[in-house]
Simulated assay, not measured.
Amino acid sequence: MNSDDPRAQRTRARLKAAVLELAAEQELATITMSALARRAEVNRATVYLHYPDVDSLVTDAMEDAVAAVARAAALCPLDAPRDRAPDPLAELFEHVSANATVYARMLGPHGSARFAARMRERLTAELTGRFAGGRRPPGWEDVPVDVHAAYLAGALVGVLAHWAAGEGGDRAEEAALAFWRLFRAACRSAP
C-alpha cells in the first residue's frame, strides 16, 4: 500500500480520529479492531491493512501530541524564572487538560505502553540534541548527556500521566508551574 496515496491518507485519518473518539469513551484495552472499523466506517480488513493492532494505531494517532510535548520541552528556556512556567510548557499542560481523559487512558496503567515509550523516546532525543548542542547547564559533566535527557523525559511523562489521571490538581497552570520548578531545578547547575 502506498502511504502517499490520498485515499490511504484519508483512511488513516479516519482511523486515527476513530481511535481517539473511542479512547475518550472507553479504556484502550476494550477497543477492538471491529469497533474501530465501525466507527471509521471501513471494513475490518482495511483496518488491518493500515495497522497491525490497536496500540500501533493509538501511537500513530497521538504522534502530533508527542511532537508537541517534545517541542514544548525543547522551547523551554532553562533560565526562565522559577515563579512562572514558560509559555510552551503552559500551553502543553492546557492541551493535556483539554484532552485529559484520552491522556489518562493513554498513559494510565491499562494504557498504551508503546505511546508512553514513544513520548519518552522523542523527549529524550530532543533534550539530548539540545544538551549536545551546548544548551546544557554547567555542572552536569559527570552525567552522560543521554542519561540526563532520559531522566528529564521520564519525569515529564510521569507528571503528565499523574496529572491527567486527576492526581495532580485541577488547573493546568498550577501543574505546569509545579513541573517547571522541578524541571528547572533538575536542569540548573549541579551543586
Rank of each mutant, 00 (worst) to 15 (best):
M1W: 12
M1P: 06
M1G: 14
S3E: 10
S3H: 12
S3A: 13
D5R: 02
P6W: 02
R10N: 10
R12D: 03
A13H: 15
R14T: 10
R14E: 14
L15V: 07
A17G: 13
A18P: 05
V19S: 00
V19I: 07
L20R: 12
E21W: 07
E21L: 13
L22C: 07
A23D: 05
A23E: 03
A23K: 03
A24L: 08
A24G: 15
L28I: 14
L28A: 12
A29Q: 13
I31R: 00
T32S: 15
S34P: 04
A35C: 12
A37D: 10
R38Q: 11
N43R: 09
V47G: 01
Y48I: 08
L49E: 09
L49I: 06
L49A: 13
L49S: 08
Y51Q: 03
D53N: 15
D53V: 08
V54Q: 01
D55F: 07
S56I: 02
S56P: 04
D60F: 02
D60A: 12
D60E: 15
E63T: 06
V66C: 01
A67M: 09
R71N: 09
R71E: 11
A72T: 06
A74F: 08
A74N: 07
L75D: 10
L75R: 12
C76W: 00
P77I: 05
P77A: 11
A80T: 08
R82M: 14
R84H: 14
P88G: 09
L89T: 01
A90Y: 04
E91D: 13
E91C: 09
L92K: 05
L92H: 09
F93S: 03
F93I: 09
E94Q: 11
H95A: 08
V96K: 03
A98Y: 07
A104R: 00
M106N: 01
H110S: 14
S112V: 01
A113K: 11
A113V: 10
R114E: 09
R114N: 07
A117T: 14
A117R: 15
M119P: 01
E121L: 14
R122W: 01
T124A: 07
A125V: 04
L127G: 05
T128H: 05
R130K: 15
F131E: 02
G133A: 14
R136H: 08
R136W: 08
P137L: 10
P138E: 13
W140R: 08
P144I: 11
V145W: 00
H148E: 14
A149E: 02
A150K: 03
L152K: 00
A153V: 06
A155W: 01
G158P: 03
G158F: 07
V159L: 10
L160T: 05
G166H: 13
E167C: 12
G168K: 04
R171S: 15
A172S: 15
E173I: 11
E173Y: 12
A175P: 06
L177H: 10
A178S: 15
F179L: 11
F179Y: 15
R181K: 15
A185F: 14
A185P: 06
A186T: 09
A186L: 10
A190K: 13
P191N: 11
P191W: 06
P191I: 04
